[in-house]
Amino acid sequence: MIDIQEVKALQQQLSLTEDETAYVRLFRIYYTALFQFSLSFVKNKPAAEEIVSDVFMQLWQIRKKLDTISNLTVYLYTCIRNHSLNYLRKNKRESTSSLDDASLSIPSTTADPEQLYITTELAKKIDAIIEQLPEKCRIIFKLVREDGLKYREVAEVLDISVKTVETQMGIAMKKINLAIQPLTDPELLSATRLRCHQN
């Protein structure tokens, strides 16, 4: 999750003193999330890397005006979206392949082999469901759950209504809950444990 207070401090520092270390820190804070976001549009790793680099080069160019940007996170995500869409228009490419490089990890709190098996199966199931979500739904889910954006921020970044974000999150959560229900149902868990012992 992005520490908003740190971002604001770095933003102010960069704006007032043109501090390169603040700039590098901002780059490190945002790079992975922005790269994944761009990749979800362009489906091309080198292109996504270049888009993030271009946006940060522009950020450096406007560094003296950074104090006028009220929400840097929304600003950066919006820039990435616009650059990604421009890339697609320029290259006349259709986004057809599914891309979800970042997987949702569920940490295990025990070394119990049965629990590890169940946790692994649960993580696999969640990853599979996220990949099967419609693209818009998947992007919204990742922005909220993995990147920590608020619904209104996602709405602003994607130029959609907050209601649309709520609806898409509802769809995503319903599909995930339905998919993992067999792995979280106590009776089915007992059957799974029994199968583990028999193998």
Rank of each mutant, 00 (worst) to 15 (best):
Met1Trp: 13
Asp3Val: 04
Ile4Tyr: 11
Gln5Asp: 13
Glu6Trp: 03
Glu6Cys: 05
Glu6Pro: 00
Gln12Phe: 07
Leu14Arg: 14
Leu14Thr: 11
Ser15Phe: 06
Leu16Val: 10
Thr17Asp: 08
Glu18Gly: 15
Glu20Met: 14
Ala22Lys: 07
Ala22Thr: 01
Val24Cys: 00
Arg25Trp: 12
Leu26Lys: 13
Arg28Asp: 14
Arg28Met: 02
Tyr30Thr: 00
Tyr30His: 03
Phe35Asp: 11
Phe35Arg: 04
Phe35Val: 00
Gln36Pro: 03
Gln36His: 14
Lys43Ala: 10
Pro46Ala: 04
Ala47Gln: 07
Glu49Pro: 05
Asp54Asn: 15
Val55Phe: 12
Met57Ala: 12
Met57Gln: 12
Gln58Tyr: 10
Leu59Thr: 06
Trp60Ala: 08
Trp60Cys: 05
Lys64Phe: 07
Ser70Asn: 12
Val74Arg: 09
Leu76Trp: 10
Leu76His: 06
Cys79Asp: 10
Ile80Tyr: 04
Ser84Arg: 09
Leu85Thr: 13
Asn86Glu: 13
Asn86Ala: 11
Arg89Leu: 12
Lys90Glu: 15
Lys90Cys: 03
Lys90His: 11
Lys90Gly: 10
Asn91Lys: 10
Arg93Val: 08
Ser97Phe: 06
Ser97Asp: 08
Ser98Gln: 07
Ser98Glu: 06
Asp100Phe: 00
Asp101Glu: 15
Ala102Asp: 05
Ser103Cys: 10
Leu104His: 12
Thr109Glu: 08
Asp112Phe: 06
Pro113Ser: 11
Pro113Ala: 01
Pro113Asn: 00
Gln115Ile: 14
Gln115Cys: 04
Leu116Asp: 11
Leu116Ile: 00
Tyr117Pro: 09
Thr119Ile: 12
Glu121Ala: 05
Leu122Met: 10
Lys124Cys: 05
Lys124Arg: 14
Lys125Tyr: 00
Ile130Cys: 05
Ile130His: 01
Gln132Met: 11
Gln132His: 09
Leu133Ala: 12
Glu135Asn: 02
Glu135Phe: 06
Lys136Gln: 01
Cys137Asp: 15
Leu143Asp: 01
Asp147Cys: 13
Gly148Glu: 13
Ala155Pro: 02
Glu156Lys: 15
Ser161Glu: 05
Lys163Trp: 07
Thr164Ser: 12
Glu166Ser: 09
Gln168His: 08
Gly170Leu: 03
Ala172Glu: 01
Met173Trp: 01
Asn177Thr: 07
Ala179Pro: 07
Pro182Trp: 02
Pro182Ala: 04
Leu183Gln: 02
Asp185Gln: 01
Asp185His: 06
Asp185Lys: 01
Pro186Arg: 01
Ser190Asp: 09
Thr192Gln: 00
Arg195Gly: 08
Arg195Pro: 06
Cys196Met: 15
Asn199Arg: 14
